[in-house]
């Protein structure tokens, strides 16, 4: 039985190829001098070669049994999306509100029990973070409530 590449592995290889192709194209259009390509060119060639090796290797390997459930993958993706939204929202809705909402939702999504414990923990944690961690920042930090 021959193997196949999982969707996440294919996505990763696709991302790596797309990014390295774009960086190589951008470096080549900027300048074709050796000084500019001394790292880009050999590394891009090596990446291409390695991708072929990995794809061929994966296709020739016997198929392994999927151990993880789809719900776990979707759970991870949901939390990742929430995390990305939280990172984006920090400077828009304020560090305090964004942190409070993210930690509350994150605790519930990760299996935190109880109605009042997750929001209470999120509130205390946000307060500590804003007053402790935030006070050490040498940069201004947008907050909505605190």
């Amino acid at each position: 039985m021959t193997g196949k590449i999982s969707a996440t592995h294919a996505a990763l290889l696709g991302i790596i190829m797309a990014i390295s192709g774009f960086i190589t194209w951008s470096a080549l259009s900027a300048s074709t001098k050796l000084n500019n390509l001394v790292v880009v060119a050999p590394v891009a060639a090596a990446l291409l070669l390695l991708t072929v090796t990995i794809v061929v290797g994966a296709l020739r390997k016997p198929m392994s049994a999927e151990t993880e459930t789809h719900s776990a993958v979707w759970g991870d993706l949901l939390l990742l999306s929430g995390f990305a939204a939280f990172c984006f929202a920090l400077t828009y809705i304020g560090f305090d509100v964004a942190t409070f909402l993210f930690v509350w939702a994150g605790v519930v999504m990760s299996g935190g029990k109880g109605l009042w414990q997750p929001p209470l923990f999120a509130a205390i944690f946000t307060l500590l973070l804003v007053k402790g961690f935030g006070s050490l920042f040498p940069y201004p930090m947008l907050t909505l409530v605190l």
Partner: peptide, 13 residues
């Protein structure tokens, strides 16, 4: 369940 979102938030900070 409490550590993961808290540390994730700290990572962004």
């Amino acid at each position: 369940s409490y550590l993961v979102p808290s540390v994730l938030a700290m990572c962004a900070w």
